[in-house]
Computed example of a mutant assay.
Amino acid sequence: MSVETKALLKSEEIKPKIGSRVLNGKEDLLSGDIAGEIRELLEARGVLVFPKIGFTSEEQVAFTKTLGTFAPEQAGGDEEITKITLDVKENPSSAEYLKGSLYWHIDGTRNDVPILASLLTCIKPSPKGTGNTGFANTYSAFEDLPEEKKAEYEQYRVVHGPWASLFYYEPEPSLAKLQAYAGIGEQELPLVWKHKSGRKSLVIGCTAAQVVGKSALESAMIIHGLRDWATGPNFTYSHEWEVGDLVMWDNTGTMHRAEPYDPSCGRMMHRTKLEGEEAFVYA
């Protein structure tokens, strides 16, 4: 008589304060048996790497669904893989907007409930030495701050808007372009996100425009100072892509960015997302 055995999660740390590699094969991952453990590891480590797992698009969607509620790219949209590339031939509608992805950010800062996580599969990497994806653990960055700084930052609120990221790559945009980006919306968010779990993370990045009640210079000192701290070597991991890699990150406690590459090189990632489960501010 055969006895079924449940899969066990197999992983190893990448760096002390960020990142783990998951070493299970496709069968274990698609079964859903270790989905709960993967979710726990994701919150604890910020970033999970599944080296050369080689998911097809259908398998990536199926794996995403084992972990939570699948989030289509557009509300009410189909459950499809989203192409992530700066190549305008492959992605004419959003390649321009994706230029902001080259700078540290959290997705969904204009939403009440941001996505929980993103999953990227590498279809074609850029040439070696370019096009890595960087990650910064904003849980760990907050937890390692001096106590007096934690208390100070917990009092602040910050205006976030995609228009603020425009100035990172186009310092002198036209009024028409600025108006278009401003039309996407903005939101006032806590600088320190107090999660239901009891942990706290920093809400910063290139969409952060100004600390409420502070001057432009004071705001820049706070926002960019914290970015420097959170993106220091202790809290960051840069993933060098190989075909078939899948990387998943916790969008509620991790910033990310694409590192520079030639937009015409053909770099292509396929993305799926998990719907958010927690508002930036909860009752």
Rank of each mutant, 00 (worst) to 15 (best):
A141Q: 10
T69E: 11
I14W: 07
W193K: 12
P173Q: 03
A44G: 11
V159C: 01
A164D: 14
S118E: 06
D107Y: 00
M248V: 00
E96T: 05
G68Q: 06
L178M: 11
A283N: 02
K124I: 05
E96V: 03
E4F: 03
E147Y: 13
E172V: 07
N132P: 02
K99P: 01
W104G: 08
A180M: 02
V212H: 03
K26E: 07
L116V: 01
E73V: 15
Y97P: 11
E275S: 07
V203M: 10
I106Y: 00
D250H: 15
Q74D: 15
V158E: 04
E58Q: 15
L86T: 02
I123H: 09
K124T: 10
V243M: 14
F50C: 03
C122V: 09
G76D: 15
K124C: 11
S215I: 09
K10W: 00
G76H: 09
A283T: 05
E143Q: 11
C206I: 05
E278A: 06
E152L: 11
N234R: 15
E43A: 07
A151C: 09
M221K: 12
D228N: 11
L178C: 10
I204A: 09
T56N: 00
P114V: 00
P92N: 02
K200C: 07
E143D: 14
K196Q: 13
F235P: 14
T130K: 14
L98I: 00
N234G: 10
A208S: 07
G46F: 03
V88G: 07
L189T: 08
M1F: 12
F63C: 02
K83A: 04
G244N: 09
G253L: 05
A141F: 15
P146L: 12
L120S: 00
D228C: 12
N24H: 03
A7R: 01
T121G: 00
L226G: 14
S57Q: 10
D107H: 04
E80F: 09
I204H: 12
N111P: 04
E4T: 11
E13S: 15
H105F: 08
T231H: 14
L23F: 04
E37L: 06
I204Q: 09
V47W: 04
E218N: 05
Y181P: 10
E278W: 11
T109H: 08
A62C: 14
R257D: 01
H224P: 02
L30T: 11
E147N: 09
L175Q: 13
R110Y: 13
E240I: 15
T130I: 08
S264W: 12
E148W: 10
P92R: 01
F167S: 10
E12L: 00
V158T: 08
V281P: 02
G232M: 03
A279F: 08
G213V: 03
K89H: 11
W104H: 14
L145E: 08
